[in-house]
């Protein structure tokens, strides 16, 4: 198991490295650089040359890449183009705010998804299942900006229960984000729950049809004992991976939601940095998101391995 883990970690590191190349190359492709953004789009001549020399933009791309990647490894993400501020400082609060959204959605969404998924599977093709499954398809396929706008219209404009837009500044204490943060969390929860519950449902259904579940049923084990002892532990294993995938997706989907609610998180910062051509910030955020994605998937693999006796004891059986 240990060698398998090392292999996974190696692959993860390679993926992050490839991502950093893609990000760097992608941003290199953008028209203009930090200097044209900082001075002016049409800046020419001496001023531009000086600026490029100061920021080291006149060097070869490969040199700049290795410098950028090396610094990023040490946690130094460079300096933003227009504000001339340390990016790690700027990103810190934004990351915290996005994590607040994600944590809220996970706290509500994962238990809810498990419950609804199990209910839908155990009462398969009954009204409860049909309602849950149809709602889930609608929730996961309708674009986030549509569900977000609809929620603002209903809960903020019509009912007036919660504010529909976030006006708190990025570095305010977390408590200041209540109650504005509730609607964004609700939208995220809705989409996330739908994704997870569909996997839970199909996984439980699959386990119900397995030989050992049928066997237990035939020899007269009480239904609920089968459900709790045989089905749920086996069925919930694949869920770990889907939760990981969904969290990773959350990081991207959050971009639209943060924009709709004007929420000062990482996603909106990314959109802003792209429109402002703040390339160092764009690169830094992309790298952070990709690293989190890889790390979460790695963690999920590890958890699956720990929870699955077959994988955990593979090396013992071989002996």
């Amino acid at each position: 198991m240990f060698s398998m883990l090392l292999r996974r970690m190696g692959l993860g590191a390679i993926t992050v490295w490839l991502v950093s190349i893609i990000i760097f190359a992608g941003v290199e492709m953008l028209p203009g650089d930090a200097c044209t953004a900082y001075l002016e789009r049409e800046a020419k001549g001496k001023l531009l040359e000086n600026c490029r020399r100061d920021l080291g933009l006149d060097r070869a791309a490969i040199t700049r890449y290795s410098e950028w990647a090396g610094n990023a490894l040490r946690g130094d993400l460079g300096v933003s183009a227009n504000g001339q501020k340390q990016i790690s400082e700027l990103v810190g609060y934004r990351l915290r705010n996005t994590l607040l959204l994600a944590a809220g959605a996970m706290l509500v969404g994962i238990p809810l998804a498990l419950f609804l998924g199990i209910v839908a599977a155990l009462w398969r093709d009954r009204p409860a299942d049909i309602i849950v499954s149809t709602t889930a398809i609608a929730a996961m396929t309708i674009p986030e900006f549509v569900s977000a706008t609809l929620m603002i219209l209903v809960f903020s404009v019509w009912l007036g229960w919660v504010p529909g837009i976030v006006l708190t500044s990025a570095n305010a204490p977390l408590a200041d984000f209540f109650p504005e943060v509730l609607l964004p969390i609700a939208v995220l929860t809705l989409v996330m729950t739908a994704h997870i519950l569909r996997t839970v449902r199909s996984s439980v259904i699959e386990t119900l049809a397995s030989d050992y579940a049928q066997m237990a049923l035939l020899k007269g084990v009480p239904y609920w004992q089968i459900v709790f002892r045989h089905i749920l532990p086996n069925a919930l294993l694949p869920t770990i991976n889907v939760v990981a995938l969904t969290i990773a997706w959350l990081l991207g989907g959050v971009v639209v939601i943060e924009t709709v609610f004007n929420y000062p998180g990482l996603g909106r910062m990314m959109i802003d940095s792209i429109s402002d051509r703040d390339l160092p910030v764009t690169q830094a955020i992309a790298l952070i998101i990709a690293t989190v994605y890889v790390a979460v998937n790695l963690l999920a693999d590890l958890l699956t391995m720990l929870a699955n006796p077959r994988l955990r004891t593979a090396h013992m059986r071989r002996k």
Binding site: T15, L18, I22, G26, G252
Partner: peptide, 17 residues
């Protein structure tokens, strides 16, 4: 895998910009 670990919106926006 590397491409898939970037959020879709970032990839699209870089090309569109």
């Amino acid at each position: 895998d590397a491409f898939l670990s970037l959020p879709w919106i970032l990839k699209m926006l870089v090309l569109i910009v």
